[in-house]
Amino acid sequence: MSRQFNMRSLILSTGTTIILPLLLLFSLFLLLRGHNEPGGGFIGGLVAAAAIALKLFADDYPSAKALLRVHPLQLVGIGLALAALSSLPSLLVGDNFFTAQWWTLPLPIFGELKLSTPLIFDIGVFLGVIGTVLTVIFTLVEAEH
């Protein structure tokens, strides 16, 4: 496998450096607009995971790992925790388990910010998907070393 990664293409590498931030931003964009337009946690998460996988192929495993900073399994854990926790606020208010809660925060310049438990849940899905996909890919790469 190392043979494959050694065949680094300069064009791909440079291209990735430029595209990668855009892809990650795009994945966030997909995640956030998901409630109203095509997108959402699954799609956003897959895009982000694919972006980091691109980095892996264009450069090498250590740099892709460094880009993520944390171990992908930790992302899975955080994602699951966020998604599970988002079910709880409804209980505090006295609604049924998992009833969506919406809060509107006024922001001085942008108008207002809409926060909700479905959004938190979707972020959990987003992180869970990134974590799972990257765990599989990283593990397979590591198995080769």
Binding site: F42, V129, T132, V133, V136, T139, L140, A143
Partner: peptide, 24 residues
């Protein structure tokens, strides 16, 4: 279907790694 696609991917990923390990 959307969830089924992602779950299908999960199962596939697991199977791929399993195959990989088994073959090894």
């Amino acid at each position: 279907i959307l969830t089924a696609i992602v779950i299908g991917f999960g199962v596939l990923a697991f199977a791929v790694v399993l195959l990989h390990r088994a073959y090894e």
